[in-house]
Simulated scan of single mutants.
Amino acid sequence: MAEQRAASTGTPGLSGDPAVPSATDRADHADRTLEGAEGAAARTFLDFLASIRPAVEARLEQRWQAEVSRVARYGREVEAMATEARSLTLRGGKRYRAGLVVAAHLGLAPDAPLDAAYDVAAALELIQTYLLIQDDWIDEDPTRRGGPSVHTALGHTLGDARLGAVSALLSSDLTWSLAIGTLAHAPATPERIVATLRALCDIHQDVVVGQHLDVLGRAEDVEQMHALKTGSYTVRGPLVLGATLAGASADVLAALDRFAAPVGIAFQLRDDLLGTFGSEAETGKPVGNDLRAGKRTAVIAWADGRLDAAASEALRKAFGRSDATANEVAAATAALVASGARTAVEDRLDALCAEAEALAASLPVSPRAREILAGAAAALRWRQR
């Protein structure tokens, strides 16, 4: 998302963008986005993601293929709107959320078929696409997942940046409806589908509030903003959706909520570290993207008031300046490292992961699910070497 303010195998989009990657290419990219995860616990989760990813990808591809075919009769421009949203959906991504949906369902209904859980997981990945499209427009980001953002691609296709932005916002609406339809048609009882849809609406409302706080750039509690904007649909949301679909009790949902709290913040802190100090291979965006965008990450929040005059000047030359040079970004990054900001956020991330792993050990779910969820927390650790 606005990360603090600041399978088709070869069908090109109308804008002339590269073909949608194959499922294997997307899996490789997804593994790189969790680069740095170490240890047996993290590997347990990564292996689980690899095992469920094909089923989720197949559903995403099927839904988009049908939708692009459906709207194509309205003309190339309308088709492009759907094609670019499809391209973003299928162009990598960790499928972290999808993994949590399936893990929660598996933890409560270990012998039940997973078709419904896969459908809900795919629906949540479509929600992610919907949010990313809007987020990239809000942040004026030209790239996402190693390719053009949807508003950028549609601006090129339509020959007008404003029309591209409007088309992108409408494509996000289209993606939202596709997500709701995917969830609504999951093979589960009507009662459980309705309960899951209600949970999704609650999650969405939290995301909107958190996004607005981020856009305003005045959130006094950065971690609270993270909990609303990212944790709500990245960790707590997927767990609630998967568990609700499996018929979880209120006590089970409360336990999952306690586990999700530190993991959701950890997810965002890791993203903050990657956005400030990570490589382009890790993030799919140019180095220093968050600095140039002027995003108030946890790194910036920690450094606020702790930099000396020289470091403050170095940061000023890059922060919120889209035209900052590579040398200016490097100097600002070095100032943040020297201030202790990177180490402080890494330490906080480690503490949150450890807290979550301890909570996972006593979750009222199957032993296999406990291992997977502990691994989901462990996989978020990140330290730059």
Rank of each mutant, 00 (worst) to 15 (best):
P262Y: 03
A184D: 10
Q211L: 08
R348Y: 00
V222P: 08
L106V: 00
A186C: 04
R76F: 10
G320Q: 04
A58C: 05
Y74K: 03
Y74Q: 12
A19E: 11
T44P: 01
A358P: 05
T343D: 15
E67D: 12
P187S: 04
A7K: 11
A168C: 08
D347L: 13
M1T: 13
G10C: 12
G375N: 04
A338V: 09
N327T: 15
P54H: 14
D141M: 11
P18M: 06
N289K: 07
V120G: 12
A341Q: 03
S22R: 11
F267Y: 15
A351R: 14
A309H: 11
D160P: 11
A344H: 08
L60V: 05
E280F: 00
D160R: 04
V20W: 04
S167F: 14
H212Y: 12
A266G: 14
R26L: 07
H156S: 15
G155M: 06
G247N: 03
A199L: 02
A121Q: 08
H105Q: 00
V240Q: 13
E77L: 12
P12L: 02
W176S: 05
G284F: 09
H226P: 01
G284E: 02
E35V: 09
R270A: 03
R270N: 01
A330Y: 00
G16I: 07
L197M: 02
T129C: 14
A122N: 10
D136Q: 07
R316S: 12
A186I: 02
A354S: 13
A293W: 02
A116I: 08
Q205F: 14
A318E: 08
G10E: 15
A42M: 08
D115L: 04
L154N: 09
R236A: 10
A310N: 08
S167Y: 05
G278S: 05
S22D: 13
A314R: 15
M81N: 03
T33E: 12
L352W: 05
Q62F: 11
I372F: 05
G231P: 01
E125Q: 09
A314W: 06
G294I: 07
E346K: 08
A338I: 04
G10I: 10
A219L: 05
A30G: 10
P110Q: 10
L49R: 12
H156M: 11
A326R: 15
Y74T: 01
V120Y: 05
A243T: 12
T234P: 00
S362C: 01
K317D: 14
L273E: 03
L124A: 05
A326I: 11
T11P: 13
R43I: 02
D136I: 06
V150C: 14
S322V: 09
E38A: 15
L174D: 10
N289T: 14
Q65R: 13
A179W: 02
E280K: 12
A184K: 07
W137S: 14
G288N: 01
T325W: 06
A37W: 09
I133T: 09
I300M: 13
A310M: 03
R144N: 09
E3H: 15
G278Q: 00
R144E: 04
Q224D: 08
I52T: 14
A379L: 01
G247V: 02
G288I: 06
E125L: 08
T234W: 04
T89K: 02
A168V: 02
A281Y: 06
A309P: 00
T182V: 06
A58L: 11
G275P: 06
I372T: 05
S172H: 09
R292D: 01
P110M: 11
L253D: 07
P110W: 09
